[in-house]
Amino acid sequence: MPGMSSSLRLKKITPDDVEAACSLRVRPDQEGLVAPVARSLAEAYAQPETAWPRLVFDGERLVGFVMAFFDVRFDPDDPKDVPRSGLWRLNIAAGEQGRGYGRFAVEAVCEEIRRRGQTRVTTTWAPGEHGPGEFYRRLGFRLTGETSGDQVVGELDLAALRAR
């Protein structure tokens, strides 16, 4: 991918990173489509058993934020209740988009979900002209027909992804 570096990494957020994380901004036309990082960090703080927030770095440069969720509340004895884990938030800095950082972050979330023994990744997105729908479809997400508020729900089958 153009602009991709071998020094891409996810980093757990520490108190030293909070100010830089909260200053990360997406493009102005995307601001109404994804919550700011500060809100995501507040949600992660309130749901530590579910949320998995990470910063995306290229070398020492902060380029994005990603947060996964892991469903720890499902009932394994209920066949209708299946665990759902996935991508909760993705914010790539305005000047860093189109360089593969989003793909890297989503793939890292997929690996973490696979490591935890699950085979499906779920995410939601705001449909529309400036929304990320095409980005998620290129990664293999398929619409489920469900909605969550005003967002559509997409799902990625990790077994099918591995078979490609």
Rank of each mutant, 00 (worst) to 15 (best):
A21H: 05
T144C: 05
F104D: 01
G149P: 02
E146Y: 09
E155D: 02
F141C: 04
R25S: 10
R84T: 11
G32C: 07
P48K: 15
T119A: 12
A42G: 03
A35G: 02
A51W: 05
P53W: 05
N91M: 13
T119H: 14
Q97V: 06
M1D: 11
R138M: 04
T123V: 04
P28N: 12
A93C: 11
E107P: 01
A38K: 11
V121Y: 03
R138K: 15
H130V: 00
E134W: 07
Y45I: 01
E43K: 06
C110N: 13
P79C: 12
D157F: 04
P79H: 11
R142H: 04
E19L: 13
P28R: 10
R61T: 15
L41A: 03
A38C: 01
P53H: 06
L139N: 06
A51T: 01
V34H: 00
D150C: 00
R137V: 13
P2R: 14
F70S: 10
A21P: 05
E96K: 09
L62T: 09
R27W: 04
T144S: 06
E129I: 06
E111V: 06
T124E: 11
R116P: 04
G154S: 06
L55D: 05
W125T: 10
E96Y: 06
L87A: 12
P83A: 14
A68Q: 13
L8F: 14
E49L: 12
E129A: 13
Y45F: 11
L161G: 00
L55W: 08
T123F: 02
V37P: 00
V66W: 05
P15H: 07
E107Q: 15
L90I: 15
D16F: 10
V106W: 04
T14G: 13
R116I: 04
L156K: 01
G117H: 07
R103H: 08
A44I: 02
A160M: 02
A105I: 07
V153D: 01
E60G: 14
I13L: 15
F70I: 14
R138S: 11
L62G: 07
G131Y: 06
R114H: 10
E60T: 14
A21N: 10
L156I: 04
D150G: 03
R162C: 01
R162N: 03
V109Y: 02
L10A: 09
A126F: 07
A20E: 12
R115W: 08
G95S: 13
L24G: 03
L143T: 08
V37Y: 02
W125E: 00
S5N: 12
V18M: 08
E19P: 00
S23T: 10
G131N: 07
D157G: 03
R120I: 06
C22T: 08
V26I: 13
A44F: 01
E19H: 12
L156S: 01
A35V: 01
M67Q: 15
R138F: 00
S6N: 14
A126H: 11
G117Q: 09
L87W: 11
E129F: 07
T144M: 07
G133L: 05
C22P: 00
W88E: 11
V37W: 01
D71H: 10
L33D: 01
L139C: 07
H130R: 10
P2H: 12
E19V: 13
A35N: 09
R27F: 03
V37L: 03
E111Q: 15
P28Q: 12
G64W: 09
A105G: 06
E134I: 02
A105H: 05
V63G: 08
N91I: 10
R61K: 15
I13D: 09
S5M: 12
